[in-house]
Design a binder for these strands. Sequence first.
DNA 1: CAATTTTATTATATATATTGAACATATTAT
DNA 2: ATAATATGTTCAATATATATAATAAAATTG
Lengths: 353, 353
Amino acid sequence: MIIQIGKPFPIGGELIIMNITDIAKEAGVSISTVSRVINNTKPVSENIKKRVFDIIEKNNFKPNVLARSLITKKTNVIGVIVPDISNSVFGLLIKGINSVCSDRGYTLMVTESGGDINNEIKLLDVLADKKIDGILFAGVDVNNKLVAEMQSKDYPVILVTQEASDGDGIINTVVHDNVKAEFDATKFLIDNGHKQIAYIGGPKYDYSSGKKRLKGYKLALAEAKIKLVESYIEQGEFSFQAGYSGMKKLYEENSILPTAVVTGSDIIAMGVIQFLSSVGVNVPDDISVIGFDDLEFSTYFKPELSTVRISYFDEGAIAAKQLIELLEGVHVIPQTHYVPHKIIRRSTIKNIN
Amino acid sequence: MIIQIGKPFPIGGELIIMNITDIAKEAGVSISTVSRVINNTKPVSENIKKRVFDIIEKNNFKPNVLARSLITKKTNVIGVIVPDISNSVFGLLIKGINSVCSDRGYTLMVTESGGDINNEIKLLDVLADKKIDGILFAGVDVNNKLVAEMQSKDYPVILVTQEASDGDGIINTVVHDNVKAEFDATKFLIDNGHKQIAYIGGPKYDYSSGKKRLKGYKLALAEAKIKLVESYIEQGEFSFQAGYSGMKKLYEENSILPTAVVTGSDIIAMGVIQFLSSVGVNVPDDISVIGFDDLEFSTYFKPELSTVRISYFDEGAIAAKQLIELLEGVHVIPQTHYVPHKIIRRSTIKNIN
DNA sequence: CAATTTTATTATATATATTGAACATATTAT
DNA sequence: ATAATATGTTCAATATATATAATAAAATTG
C-alpha cells in the first residue's frame, strides 16, 4: 500500500454563487419577475425575459433546489430500497429505474436494507427525512406490518420485484409472476418427459418469492397429476452454497434420484450443478436442471443454464415510470403489474420423451 | 400481463407534520430554544430541555432537512458517479461506499454515466445542483479536462477505482495499482514456466485501466527478458464477447499459439476460455489463462478461474471514509491510496516448469 | 449589597426561492 | 373617451430552520 503526497485540497479560485436576489438586482427587476422567467409561471415581456436569461446564463445561475423544494414540497428525488446493492438482480433493477428517472429529471437516492424488515422500516423514515418524492421498494418479505408502515407515510411507495402479502389493489406493484413463472419452468420439464422433479429453492418467508416459486412448482405437478414427494424439496438461501448443499442433502436422502430439478434461482442452479458434477452425475444426461432469473453469467456457465428469464431492468423502468406519473398527478389506481417472463432453453435440459 | 385494479392511492389519514414553530409554541419557549435543544449548541436548562424533548417525541417531530441545509450548507448526501450500475464491480464498489456512509449518517445519490465524459461532466453539475456535500467518482478515462471540471466545483471529489491522468497529489484517489496487479499476474505465469504469453485486455483510452494493465503485462515481460510479440496483444471492451473475439483473432493470426493468456478482466477471460474450448484447446492443459477482478462467478465458472483479486468493496469503503473525513474538517492532503490486490490460483493455470 | 460574570432565553437576521394579491401599464372594445 | 381586458411587475407572505446579537435572569465575587 503506497501513499503519495501532494498539494492540499481544494485547489481553484473562489466560486461566486449568485442567488435570485443578485440576478434580480443585476437585471433591474424584482425577484418575482426572475422567478417568473425561470419557471415560466406567468407572462413576462420578451425584453425582460431575454435580459434576465442573459444574466442567468452569464453568471451560470442555478436556483437553489433546497430553497425551491422548501416551498414546492418537491425535491425530484426518488428513494430506492433494495436488499443488496451488489446483487446483479438489483443492479439491473436500479439500472432500469435510473434509465427512466434520469431522463425525466429525477435523481435516485439508493439505500440497502439487507432484507431486514427493521432496517427497511428505518430506511422508509431516513428517506422521508430526506424529503424524497416517493419510494421504489424492493423487499424480501413484504408483510402487512411493512405495508402498513408504507401507507402511514406522506409519500407514495411502489413495490418492485416483490409484491406484498395482501397488497393487491392496495399498493402499486410491478413484479413478475413468480408462481406462474415457476409453474411454467416446471411444466417445461414435464413437457420434456420428466416426472421425478425435485425443487431446490429460496427461503420460506411467508410472503417471499421463494414461497411463491415453490407454489408454482407444486401447481404444475398437480396439474400433471404427479405426486409430490416431500423429500424432493429443499429450501434455503438464494445462494450457490445453498444450491450445492441443498442438492447434496437431496442426493444423500433419496435412494431414487429425480430426473430433473427446478430451482429458485440461477445461482442456486449453479450450486446444484456443481454438486452433481462433483459426484459424477451429468447434467443434462442424468439430471436436467432449470434456473430462474437469467443472469448474464448463466450463458457463460458450463453447461449453459436453461432458465426463466425475468426482466428486472424492465420492472425497474416500468415501476419508475408509474411512480413518476403518480407524482406528476396522473391518477393511478393501485394495481399489480406483471412483467412477462420467458423460458430460455439452453444446455441443461434433456428431453426424455 | 395481468393488471389488477383496486382502491385508489393514497390510503390512511392525514399526517400532521409539525415544524419547529409548532413545537416552540406547544412548549411555551422560543424557536431558538427548541433549536438549541435539538442541536445541543448552547446550554438550555434541564427543565426546558426535557419539556421540549418530550413534545418532540410525542409529535414525532423531525427538523426539515431542507431548511436546515439551506443554512448549514450541508446536506449529508454524497453523490456517486459510476459508469454502469449493474456491473457487479461497481455494485460492489457502491456497496462498500454505502457500508460506511450509512453508518455515518450519509445517504447516497447514485448516478450512472455510461463512461461517457460529457455525461460525467453533466452529472457533476446535476449533483452539484442537488447540493451534495461531495462526490465519489468512478470514471473510465479520467483525463485532464475532467479533473479540471472537478476542481472547478465547490465540493470535494474523490476518485475511486480509476485514477486521473496526472492526478497524483492533485486529487484524492483510492484505487488498486493496475500496473502492479497485471505485472504480478503476468509474473505469476512466468514463474509457472510460461514464456509465450498473450494479452487480451480492455479498451485503450489514454488513462484507462485497460492501458495500465497492458503496461503491467509489458513490464513483467521486459523484466523477464521475454520479447514482446505484437500479434499476441488484443484490446477491446471489457466484455465476454470481446474476450471471445479477441482470442479468436489471436488464434487465427498466429501460427504458434501462446502457452498462456493474461486478460484485462474475468469476463474477458471467460470469453477467451469459451473460444478456446470451442476450438478444442484445453485450459489449462494447452493454454493457461488468468483473469482480473475476481468476480463471485469466477469460482462457479468451469474451469475455476485463476485471477487477480481486487477489493472493490474495500476501495469504496476507504474512499467514502476519506471523503467523510474531508467533509468533517479533518485535513487530508491529496494522495493516491492503493488498495492491495492478490493473485488467486484456481484451475486455469498449469505449471509447465 | 452592588458589581460582575455566567447562564438562559428571546428577538431578529439569514439562508433562498415561490406565489398570490395588489398595483400599474398597455391594449382593445364600446 | 371611457371602460374592460390583458399583460407585466412588485410587495409581502410563506416555507423552515440556524445563528448571532441582545436582553434578562441567576449566580458569583469583592
